[in-house]
């Protein structure tokens, strides 16, 4: 894999709905700067919404880091959602549709996976969870 070079980075602490708003705004701005089409900027904002919602719901607080990145010829946006919460005991279960209580099929983490080009999740019980997603410029 080509080395990833990072450019700009924004960190948003997530504690309340207001912080979610801020994270979405920063994500959308970064996407716009990278010349994402409007629909893809919306995808980025959506992913941030779902990731931030997860942080507030399960860990109470955390952080979202939005980075503009370059990997070979590709340019894109990397979103990292991190918390020091209770962690996810069973990741594959959490990644299954219908597991979350959100109602619609595939909202929550599985939805984020489908919206983004790349998705990684690391979690340790009683230590926290980190989700790292990438969306490349089309």
């Amino acid at each position: 894999m080509a080395a990833t070079s990072y450019h700009r980075e924004v960190r948003v602490p997530v504690r309340s709905d207001l912080d979610v708003l801020k994270a979405r705004q920063d994500g959308r701005e970064m996407a716009r700067e990278l010349a994402f089409i409007s629909a893809d900027s919306t995808l980025v904002a959506t992913a941030i919404s779902e990731l931030a919602r997860n942080i507030i719901q399960y860990a109470g607080q955390g952080e979202i880091i939005i980075t503009a990145a370059e990997e070979g010829a590709r340019r894109g946006i990397i979103i990292v959602a991190h918390d020091d919460g209770p962690g996810i005991p069973n990741i594959s279960e959490a990644m299954q549709d219908g597991y979350s209580t959100s109602g619609g099929l595939g909202l929550g983490l599985p939805g984020v996976r489908r919206l983004m080009d790349e998705f990684e999740i690391f979690s340790e019980v009683n230590a926290g969870t980190t989700v790292r997603v990438k969306k490349w410029l089309r």
Binding site: L43, T46, G104, L105, G106, L107, P110, G111, R114, L115
Partner: peptide, 12 residues
Amino acid sequence: MPFEITYRGYVE
């Protein structure tokens, strides 16, 4: 957008 996610969920 939530409908889009759900739609993709159904496709998968």
